[in-house]
C-alpha cells in the first residue's frame, strides 16, 4: 500500500509543470497570482534577483504564454508591467493542486 502511494506521488511529481516548479519562477507566478499586475522594479525588489536573472525567467514564462510583459514609459522612466495570462493563471492553479496532492 505504501509503495503504491509512493509510486502515485512520483507519477504526480513527473506531471508537475517544471517551468513553474523552479523556485524563482514559482515566486514570480505567486506574486502575479495575487496581483493584477506588477512592474519590473517591484519584482526585482521583492525577489532579490538581479535584473538579468529576472529578465531571463520572465522570458521563459512569456514564451510559455504564462505572463504578459508590457514595455513602455511612465513619468519619463522606463516601465515594464507584468501580469499573469489566463493560461498562466490556470497553470499556476493546477500546479498548486498537484502540490497539495503530493504533500497530503
Amino acid at each position: 500500500m505504501m509503495a503504491e502511494n509512493t509510486q502515485k506521488d512520483l507519477n504526480l511529481e513527473m506531471e508537475l509543470d517544471r517551468l513553474i516548479h523552479e523556485p524563482a519562477r514559482l515566486k514570480i507566478m505567486a506574486f502575479l497570482a495575487v496581483l493584477d499586475s506588477a512592474d519590473f522594479t517591484f519584482l526585482v525588489s521583492r525577489l532579490g534577483l538581479t535584473m538579468g536573472n529576472l529578465s531571463a525567467h520572465l522570458s521563459k514564462l512569456e514564451d510559455a504564454g504564462y505572463v504578459e510583459v508590457e514595455k513602455g514609459y511612465k513619468d519619463n522612466r522606463p516601465h515594464t508591467a507584468i501580469s499573469l495570462t489566463a493560461e498562466g493563471d490556470e497553470a499556476f492553479q493546477s500546479y498548486r493542486d498537484q502540490m497539495k496532492q503530493i504533500l497530503q
Partner: peptide
C-alpha cells in the same frame, strides 16, 4: 516607485 516599483492589486485584494 523608483525603489520598489508599483503594483495593481488583484481582485481579492
Amino acid at each position: 516607485v523608483p525603489r520598489v516599483g508599483s503594483i495593481q492589486p488583484g481582485r481579492a485584494l
